[in-house]
């Protein structure tokens, strides 16, 4: 299971990386926005994408849309972990095809639940 973590703040990437490690996902890579994440996704055979929304360069929602439009990446599970909390935004992300949505600040438990739920649905 290879996971890509996309967030413009290195501390947030580190927190998510640590939490994922505790959940048993040790194979992770990091990118600081959509622009750097996209080539990694295209060449890196990732199984899961965790992305922030608000980032300089390419935002998480744009990255999600590009992923969903890409023939090879369109089935990649995407979890959005973001401070964006407007209802319109959550609906927008859902319409763009997000698999899960976690608002910051979040707890380890919430992250765990959402990831497990996504895998359950993907595998089931």
């Amino acid at each position: 299971m290879k996971i890509l973590i996309v967030d413009d703040f290195s501390t947030m990437r580190r927190i998510i990386k640590n939490l994922l490690r505790d959940l048993g996902f040790t194979n992770t890579a990091e990118a600081d926005d959509g622009t750097t994440a996209l080539p990694m996704l295209k060449s890196g055979s990732f199984d899961f994408l965790v992305t922030d929304w608000n980032m300089p360069g390419m935002s998480g929602i744009d990255l999600l849309r590009i992923v969903r439009a890409d023939e090879r990446l369109k089935h990649l599970p995407v979890l959005m972990v973001t401070a964006e909390a407007k209802r319109d935004q959550i609906i927008e992300a859902a319409q763009a095809g997000v698999n899960g949505y976690v608002v910051k600040p979040f707890t380890a438990q919430v992250l765990k639940e959402k990831i497990e739920k996504i895998f359950e649905r993907v595998n089931g």
Binding site: W53, N54, M55, S59, I61, D62, T82, A83, E84, A85, K86, D88, Q89, E92, K104
Partner: peptide
């Protein structure tokens, strides 16, 4: 809304 606004105050 695609722009992103960051954390919301007085949510």
């Amino acid at each position: 809304p695609s722009k992103g606004e960051g954390p919301q105050m007085h949510a």
